[in-house]
Design a protein around this nucleic acid. Structure first.
Lengths: 332, 332
DNA sequence: CTGTTAGCGCCTTCAT
DNA sequence: ATGAAGGCGCTAACAG
């Protein structure tokens, strides 16, 4: 089923068929209709590979995510895909599983597929390669996470500011009697959330004992471990600040396991925790907006690939969204 | 950056470069090393479009899912992708959003991209088109959901049997004093779960009053509405059977809103509900296994595309997995 | 308005 | 062991 078959069946040359395919150049009404008819009858689908090869344009964007079972990323991805689709751009996903090696492989594959742009929520490991990609003319858009040493377009949330605000609230209420469950330091959002806390501590002139900070890794299991840790202390914190919602879920699991009421400690968490609507807790959340992140990333990407808008040599455009804080008193 | 550039830089012809790229034919040790060296230096990435065009082989599989924010599907997709990647096959996702029109568009796009196979958790709308695709030589593998009127490879869970078992348990315990929250009838899993209930009712010679069946649509909102419905009845059911976990979540939300304790009714639900670990309930779940579904779909697909194993004219291979039932007494 | 032609980057005989 | 050449399906001048 090629353009040749269509041309023959319609009694025209391939060029004419190509013209109706691309809505370019002049084609008589009669020919146009005949060709359209034939295409429908044969159920012809143009070969995207051949078109892309010839046009040097794939209308394709790569997206690398660390975990495609993560609700936050998938919400962003979904919106992103919708937006791109409106401009006839297609998304090719890859899942790195937080593994730099797999990320490297994914980047390679996407390059081979000649994606016109790369959107990345990365492990942070391949700054040099990404810079090279950019230099070669493929726009790179960082999503949610920064990559140290890489000046690229950026769509992120203001983690530090939100964390600082949340921490100030807790410090003013409980002083140093709080616990912090940190994320993995290799991820920029985790670093920023930690530094927000640090800023708040400095602002209030408070020191946090080392055992009040638990080094988690954004997983539910580490939140559960944090609960065990905090509840094992001579004096357990009155409140906990958790750097993401998975760890918060784990924290509650751990509290339950230790026979503690779930509203025994006040908790502030990054990211929504739907489950909290079903039990009694004192939970405040820093509400993120993956859809807006996805939409902004799409908009930025399209600007680069559609309008060939060049990035400044110095650095890219930064879009920073402020998460909303949702304070909750006992929510039962 | 083409094979020509590499050839020139290495002082050989493009044919030789192609040979090392494909590890085919004879290449002297010296040439091989020189070429590999040049490729590394130039950071050459072969053009997948050109290769696929020439080889008539894209090493690409299409996957259409109804909702890429759904944990079940994404768990399956992840496993699927991992398995395919091991054989150097790549997955191209599309999200249909449960919309037949978008699904149609997605199928078209994937055809244009010349995917070697299509894996589909569909809206059930395009049996004829899919049959045509199959006839044209593109294997179609149905994931989780059947498509009426289409004889294709199939990887699903045994919804009817599991639903029947669950229903029998409830009927033996509460007689007709139970409620059922059904899924949308256009989805095969919903139909099967409903028919499992029907079988159980017949087996026990019990009739369920029409108001004891609520027509949900697999969304949380419809579960919440179901709660409102059941609790508004003159006599509320003593137990509820919910056709999926999102609706179960909604059910609990609704119960909470009506001031009912979450263990006031016994509940059996399709699909895990993680949140239940955090509150007191009487919930039993029919545990699904998306990873196994994904793995099986990958295995089946690879058999078709790698070994060109033909499907029987009559129908495809059916892999039916039995979900595990996890009975819980009060889980506090 | 339409057809002819020359590639896009790569692979694959067929010679050598 | 290597190179020359044709063609995968399509588009984009250029002629007519």
């Amino acid at each position: 089923m090629t353009i040749k078959d269509v041309a023959r069946a319609a009694g025209v040359s391939t060029a004419t068929v190509s013209r109706v395919l691309n809505e370019s150049g002049y084609v008589s009404q009669g020919a146009r209709e005949r060709i359209a008819q034939v295409m429908r009858e044969m159920n012809y689908q143009p070969n995207a590979l051949a078109r892309s090869l010839k046009q040097e344009r794939t209308r394709t964007v790569g997206l690398i995510l660390p975990d495609m079972t993560n609700a936050y990323f998938m919400a962003a991805a979904r919106r992103l895909q919708q937006q791109l689709l409106e401009q006839d751009y297609h998304l090719i996903y890859m899942d790195s599983g937080e593994d730099p090696d797999k990320e490297l492989e994914a980047i390679g594959l996407l390059r081979q597929m000649r994606v016109e742009a790369l959107i990345l929520a990365g492990t942070g490991a391949h700054a040099a390669l990404l810079a090279q990609l950019q230099a070669a003319g493929t726009p790179v858009v960082l999503l949610d996470r920064r990559v140290e040493g890489l000046a690229a377009d950026l769509v992120v949330e203001d983690n530090a500011a939100a964390a600082e605000q949340a921490a100030l609230y807790l410090l003013d209420r409980y002083g140093a009697d709080i616990g912090f469950i940190a994320g993995p330091d290799r991820v920029s959002t985790a670093r920023e959330r930690r530094s927000g806390l640090t800023r708040a501590l400095q602002a209030r002139g408070v020191q946090l004992a080392p055992e009040r900070i638990y080094a988690g890794d954004y997983t539910r299991a580490s939140g559960r471990a944090a609960a065990a840790h905090f509840l094992g202390l001579a004096r357990r914190p009155q409140a906990v600040f958790s750097a993401n919602n998975e760890m918060t879920f784990g924290l509650y699991l751990g509290m339950k396991e230790h026979g503690l009421a779930l509203d025994a400690m006040e908790v502030v968490s990054f990211g929504r925790l739907d489950a909290a609507a079903l039990f009694t807790a004192r939970l405040s959340v820093i509400v993120q907006q993956p859809e807006r992140i996805g939409e902004a990333a799409a908009e930025l990407t399209l600007r680069r690939v559609l309008h060939k808008q060049q990035r400044d040599a110095a650095g890219g455009e930064s879009l920073v969204f402020a998460p909303r804080l949702e304070w909750a008193s006992a929510n039962d």
